[in-house]
Nucleic acid binder design. Structure first.
Length: 491
RNA sequence: GCCGUUAUCGUCUAGUCUGGUCUAGGACGCCGCGUUCUCAGCGCGGAGACUCGGGUUCAAAUCCCGAUAACGGUACCA
């Protein structure tokens, strides 16, 4: 791609930079997906970087979850904490020296300063500003301290943070790849904290330093970062670096139109796996949230997604995450799975002892029949129970519409006679259908009168797969047993 | 409060740059019909939107101005 300003060709390197503070959720995966799609589209690199600079919210297990999530979704990265690359390390906690070094450089050339204000004082001024309804920002108390004096205080062990000196005048322009030109007056930008009092960097310093050295371009991230982009642009300037291009993605919203969070229920990305969704389905669905390939088609393989993806076609408005549409995608993908693959994926959701009872071929058919009616893998077990155990049901359920029990009994009895004569080896779906239907026709038995009780006898359900399908899977012996049982219920 | 972003069916969206072909197209969901013993699937059909107010123009979803609303930011969180 070109960088837009001087047509210089630069390598595409995008990154997903989560902070390990909890389980990754859909919004994060969505951002990762777009970064991945972009990198793959331009044959660039996709990097995973762990932004673990917040020691108070740090969760040790989160990094593994992030990696597991990316793996499950098939968003492979070229460099990361567990895949060494030329720009590592890929954990910010292992790059502390770098950040400190540049913070000091900034202080040395007057672009930043030590601030000794206590959190309490900061809170005070914010409270007052809120009361006076003026913009809430740092009041510059330490901005003009004598650098020598500040340095001595620091050296003497006094606690301080490092703040960036934002110019009072002028404006900073973000030329966003998705939103175009966004202008910010410098006067409303706060003197951003770069280094916290514990010596760790804030997001702004760390991400700028890392994006620079890891040669990230473009930076693709969620809209929540748009307001802080001018600060970062100013930081690049102060550091004497060329800033990357930025693309701010719209936000994924909950049904109440607010940013997706815990209160919208469990949005953990790995929950999709546990809930029986297929990664391909979720990817397809997520890709079409906020991005549109300008066709009426909706199903896209990964390769097609990569081929067609472009940032210009990304929407500006936030999109509500709609579970029903995801379900539709998932059902579609479930039905188009090759039988062997389907069994393999469904197995973990089924009861072990039941699975072991069946020969592989029968298991494949059971799962296949269930999958035609399931939206997720998780729903499959409930749709297969009648195959594994004799159904329990009210005798009256055997009667089709207004049919009386006597007549139903006659039909089942006739079915019993017909099926008894059929060799077990011929108990296939097609055979069954041909024979039974021609008898119904010849003997004027009534399709509903016969087939409804047959199906109920076999499944015990009001809604189920068809009787021939079930009978073929159950086999001759079990089919006859269940029909006999139905007869007993009716007498 | 201040700063910023956004605005087409309930939801995801096409159309907006380059005004007419838009009595606004597709998909999910919903409703009905058909296929059918039931469900699912499939096929067909229906209800359903240009945030509001001004302008410009022969003509505006599309251009201009002004409101409004929603969301995001406003942390020694990211």
């Amino acid at each position: 791609m070109t960088n837009g300003t001087n047509n210089e060709i630069i390598a595409v390197r995008t990154r997903f930079a989560p902070s390990p503070t909890g389980d990754p959720h859909v919004g994060s995966v969505w951002t990762a997906l777009f970064n991945w799609l972009y990198a793959r589209h331009y044959h660039g690199k996709f990097i995973l970087r762990i932004e673990d600079t917040d020691r108070t919210r740090f969760i040790a297990s989160a990094e593994m979850k992030i990696i597991e999530t990316l793996r499950w979704f098939g968003l492979d990265y070229d460099e990361g904490p567990d895949i060494d690359g030329p720009f590592g390390p890929y954990r910010q906690s292992e790059r502390l020296n770098l950040y400190q070094q540049y913070a000091e450089q900034l202080i040395a050339n007057g672009a930043a300063y030590y601030c000794f204000c206590s959190p309490e004082r900061l809170q005070e001024i914010r409270k007052e500003q809120k009361l006076r309804k003026t913009p809430i920002r740092y009041d510059g108390h330490c901005r003009n301290l004598d650098p020598q004096a500040a340095f001595s205080r620091r050296a003497a062990g006094e606690i301080a943070v490092v703040r960036l000196k934002i110019p009072f005048n002028g404006q900073t322009v973000v030329d966003d790849l998705i939103r175009g030109r966004v202008v910010f007056k410098n006067s409303v930008i706060d003197d951003q904290i770069l280094l916290k009092s514990d010596g760790w960097p804030t997001y702004h310093l760390a991400s700028v330093v890392d994006d620079h050295f890891m040669q990230i371009n473009p930076v693709i991230r969620a809209e929540e970062w748009l307001s802080s982009t001018p600060k970062q642009l100013l930081l690049y300037q102060a550091l004497g670096w060329t800033a990357p291009r930025f693309a701010h993605l719209p936000l994924i919203l909950g049904s109440d139109r607010s940013k997706l969070s815990k209160r919208h229920g469990s949005m953990d990305a790995l929950k999709f796996r546990d809930d029986g969704y297929l990664p391909e389905a979720v990817i397809n669905f997520l890709a079409l949230l906020g991005w549109n390939p300008k066709t009426n088609e909706e199903f896209f393989t990964r390769a097609e997604l990569i081929k067609r993806f472009e940032l210009k076609a990304v929407n500006k408005a936030g999109a509500i995450y709609d579970r029903q549409k995801l379900d539709w995608f998932n059902a579609h993908y479930l039905r188009s799975l090759p039988p062997a693959e389907l069994v393999h994926l469904a197995k973990p959701y089924l009861e072990k002892k039941e699975v072991e009872k069946l020969p592989p071929a029968a298991l494949g058919r059971v799962v296949g029949v269930a999958a035609e009616r399931a939206k997720t893998l998780l729903e499959i077990p409930a749709l297969t129970t009648f195959f594994f155990k004799r159904p329990a049901y009210e005798p009256s359920l055997l009667n089709w519409k207004q049919t009386v029990a006597d007549l139903t009994a006659q039909r089942i009895n006739r079915l019993l006679e017909i099926l008894k004569d059929l060799p077990a080896a011929d108990f296939t779906e097609d055979n069954l259908e041909n024979i039974v239907k021609s008898k119904i026709n010849d003997e004027k038995l009534g399709v509903g009168e016969t087939l409804w009780p047959m199906r109920v006898a076999l499944t015990g359900l009001k809604e189920s797969p068809g009787p021939f399908t079930v009978a073929a899977i159950l086999g001759k012996e079990e089919t006859l047993e269940r029909l006999s049982e139905a007869m007993k219920k009716l007498s």
